[in-house]
């Protein structure tokens, strides 16, 4: 049993920053958009730190939560979580860093939800970010090299999202989570991350459904993090082989970077899912019950060069939206 139900965990508010690639699709309503990848700093790493700080500062200011935040849990892609660690050095707030690659956002929500549900804390912030050039340089080639992008590959999303969670009632309730297991289906191609992560997403979804004894139609929407167009098709095929049919499924990465704008599989990065969730899905009143399946490809460049197969993980979070509380 890897699923946990929550009684008192709610999402209060969020703040999103996105880059210039992210507004090419259907989502335009981010809180802030940056059109320069340096964001008036000297390095791309500094730019990502600045994005994170602005997201945290604004979400705290907007909700008048100065001195009230008990914990920040942050996760992103940089080695040793260098970006989050630098950001958090500016705050006097207890901090936990977490890493599940592109599933880090859901991991941070799970950590906070457990602390909030047992009332050990009252307000917590989940922070995530990614930056196309920080990731490109760390995982792939020098930025100015402009290594050709192939059709099965994904491009990292740029942005940062800070979300305030609380155990005071709001209209978005976090109802349950499923902690994923590491799944390795023998794929060693780091450019085909959709194929690496699809089995992990399917495994977590099946665990979630059997733990809670529900079927996929219970949700108005099941949304995966960054499987991309290639991974989404594989995800559906694996579920079909296990007699599970999805009618209410989308992939955040494919939605963020559409096929007509980018000739690749989609967008990746831990920030892709929250950007879509908080700026599109939760703004649409149609969706009341939503399952977030964040997916992470847990590869390191060293092991990929050694031709090892790539493990993947996926964590699930379910949200329930009530009509306005009034």
């Amino acid at each position: 049993m890897s699923s946990i139900k929550y009684k008192n965990v709610y999402i209060l508010d969020s703040y999103s920053i996105a880059g210039k690639n992210e507004i090419k699709g259907s989502i335009k309503s981010y809180d802030r958009i940056i059109d320069d990848y340096y964001f008036d700093t000297n390095t791309f790493e500094d730019a990502e730190v600045k994005m994170q700080s602005i997201a945290v500062d604004n979400v705290i200011k907007k909700n008048k939560l100065e001195d009230k935040i008990n914990l920040i849990v942050a996760g992103e892609l940089s080695n040793q979580l260098a970006i989050s660690n630098s950001t958090m050095s500016k705050y006097k707030i207890p901090y936990l860093g977490c890493y599940s690659a592109c599933a880090s956002f859901n991991e941070s929500l799970i950590i906070l939800a457990n602390m909030l549900d047992c009332k050990k804390i009252k307000y917590g912030i989940s922070l995530t970010s990614s930056h196309i050039n920080v990731a490109e340089r760390q995982f792939r080639y020098p930025i100015e090299y402009g290594a050709p992008k192939i059709k099965r590959s994904t491009l990292t999303a740029t942005g940062s999202v800070a979300v305030v969670l609380t155990n005071q009632k709001t209209n978005i309730k976090l109802t349950s989570s499923t902690i994923g297991e590491v799944v390795d289906y023998g794929i060693s191609d780091a450019l085909n991350m959709g194929a690496v992560m699809a089995p992990a997403a399917a495994t977590t979804l099946m665990n979630h459904l059997s733990d809670l004894k529900i079927d996929p139609s219970y949700y108005d929407l099941i949304i995966t993090g960054d499987l991309g167009r290639v991974g989404s098709k594989l995800f559906i095929e694996i579920l079909k082989a296990n007699n599970i049919k999805l009618n209410n499924y989308i992939d955040a990465g494919s939605l963020l970077f559409k096929e007509e704008d980018f000739d690749i599989s989609g967008s990746s990065g831990p920030v892709a899912l929250p950007l879509v969730i908080f700026n599109k899905i939760l703004k649409n009143t149609k969706y009341k019950k939503i399952l977030l399946l964040a997916t992470g490809s847990l590869h390191s460049t060293t092991l990929v060069n050694q031709k090892k197969t790539i493990p993947a993980i996926s964590h699930a979070i379910s949200l329930e939206v009530e009509d306005d509380l009034s």
Binding site: R152, G186, I187, A195, V230, L234, E237
Partner: peptide
């Protein structure tokens, strides 16, 4: 699964 990946890539 590898055959499936080949088909959909």
């Amino acid at each position: 699964y590898k055959l499936l990946v080949k088909k959909y890539t």
